[in-house]
């Protein structure tokens, strides 16, 4: 009687240990999948936002996914860095010819107090009418730029303040994954090659 009961107990113990082992393995595998998949396939550009484009239309992250894109963050009271970046992107679109359909170029103004959609419309059209210009509520902009590792900060007061801002252009895959950056110091050839690689993926 005693022996048979201890046999049962031993079986239960073995089975329990076995179950614990199996469960731990399953949990470890699940944890690793979640952990490493978020790292390898993070989609910062698929995180939600709601802004307004140069035509006054509401735009969310969804409208700007689906094809590769190039993003620049700046402001129109910027005399050299911003117009130079936009002129370079306009040149890239021109160089791409018909292939330019595969790329979306987006300019986000981080200075919504001064850059209204109407101002942005004329401003970007001067460089290339295909460029999408966005701006919106401060809260939305902060949330969006944080998710995309973009820095910006208002410097100074009154009417003549400046904006410090990330100078590089971010290249983004169609599904929102990060592809790379166009550095402001790179020459036009390198930039064009990177864009060609992005749209050729």
């Amino acid at each position: 009687m005693n022996t048979s009961r201890s046999k049962v107990l031993r079986t239960i113990r073995w089975v329990s240990w076995g179950l614990i082992a199996v469960l731990s393995t399953v949990l470890a595998v699940l944890w690793a999948q979640v952990r490493f998949s978020t790292e390898a396939e993070a989609k910062p550009y698929a995180t939600p936002f709601q802004l307004t484009d140069q035509n006054g239309a509401t735009v969310t992250e969804r409208e700007l996914l689906g094809k590769p894109s190039a993003w620049f963050y700046g402001f129109t009271h910027c005399p050299d860095v911003c117009p130079t970046a936009l002129a370079e992107m306009a040149q890239v679109l021109k160089e791409l010819g018909p292939e330019a359909d595969k790329l979306r170029v987006v300019f986000v103004s981080v200075d919504p107090a001064r850059d209204t959609p109407a101002i942005l419309k004329d401003y970007v059209a001067y460089f290339d009418e295909r460029i999408v210009a966005l701006t919106g509520e401060e809260r939305q902009l902060q949330q969006m730029t944080k998710a995309r590792y973009i820095f910006y900060k208002k410097v100074g007061d009154g009417d003549s303040y400046e904006m410090d801002h990330t100078a590089g252009i971010q290249l983004v895959r169609a599904d929102g994954r990060f592809f790379g950056t166009l550095d402001s110091h790179e020459n036009a050839d390198v930039k064009l090659q990177k864009v060609r690689r992005l749209i050729g993926e």
């Binding site: 005399p79 117009p83 001064r114 419309k121 004329d122 401003y123 460089f127």
Partner: peptide
């Protein structure tokens, strides 16, 4: 001076 885009308030 570099030509400005319309709407720009500053020129370099």
């Amino acid at each position: 001076i570099v030509e400005t885009p319309p709407g720009a308030k500053v020129a370099a």
